[in-house]
């Protein structure tokens, strides 16, 4: 299997009063192609920092990160990625169709390919009827779906989702979960952070848990969680153990 994500000895330090704060401390993990990997951890553990390094928003202090073998600092590494940010937003003065179309153009798509991709994404998101409305008129859930659509327009091999269901009502969460399930069935590699453990358990096959900037667990979910145990129990136990060791 090829590695979609490879993180080796990665550290990130932020300058602070009189020194540095270590947000990530020599972390190592990888995600194989075709895996659906949940990236879990308490608030402030380093999940978004890791994702921001993968997307090139943040530079690593030490170590390296690669996506499909390309250094994440090169913009070409982002050609095969789809990314949905935490609290996503987009240009509200555009219609849903225009937002997808402009995003497609940033990936070099034009003409019929672009149009057919836009139409396919709108259909998958169940947004065809609202496609020509301005995004400023959309509900929070519709906005989240169109932002997810923007992250899928280039038919990415790796999809990175940062709290994809955060701030959504149960129906909105169910819609996003369905879309993730569909992407998993298509064989896409998905790497997502979430606080919704029951939700993560239903879709992921791989697990990485981070606490205080250190990776405490990484592996296949069916090997880590014993029969009779669920992800929530396992997560709490792991985090408490990590806190004692700290």
């Amino acid at each position: 299997m090829n590695k979609a994500i490879e993180i080796v000895d990665l550290s990130v330090k932020f300058p602070s009063r009189g020194g540095f704060v270590e947000a990530l401390s020599h972390i190592n993990f990888s995600v194989e192609t075709g895996q659906v990997c949940a990236f879990l951890g308490p608030n402030g553990a380093g999940k978004t920092t890791t994702i921001h390094v993968l997307l090139g928003f943040l530079a690593a202090t030490e170590g390296m990160a690669k996506i499909f073998g390309e250094d994440v600092r090169k913009s070409i590494a982002r050609q095969r990625i789809g990314y949905l940010a935490e609290h996503p937003d987009t240009y509200r003065f555009l219609t849903g169709r225009e937002a997808l179309s402009i995003t497609g153009r940033l990936f070099g798509m034009t003409g019929r390919t672009l149009q057919s991709n836009v139409n396919a994404i709108l259909a998958m998101l169940d947004m065809t009827s609202a496609a020509n409305r301005k995004i400023s008129t959309y509900s929070r859930g519709m906005m989240q779906r169109i932002c997810l659509g923007q992250s899928l327009i280039n038919n990415p091999d790796l999809i990175i989702l940062d709290e994809p269901t955060g701030g959504l009502d149960p129906i909105g969460r169910m819609n996003i979960r369905k879309i993730i399930g569909r992407l998993r069935d298509e064989g896409k590699t998905i790497f997502f952070s979430s606080h919704e453990l029951s939700e993560a358990e239903t879709v992921c096959d791989h697990l990485v848990i981070i606490s205080s900037g250190n990776i405490v667990v990484s592996g296949a979910i069916n090997k880590l969680i014993k029969p009779g145990e669920n992800l929530e129990k396992y997560f709490m136990k792991t985090i408490q153990t990590a806190a004692i060791h700290d």
Binding site: S75, Y83, A85, H87, T90, L106, F107, Q150, S151
Partner: peptide
């Protein structure tokens, strides 16, 4: 301010 910078810079744009 709107956070659109994150999804924009996640595209292959320098």
């Amino acid at each position: 301010n709107r956070g659109t910078i994150f999804s924009l810079l996640a595209k292959p744009i320098t």
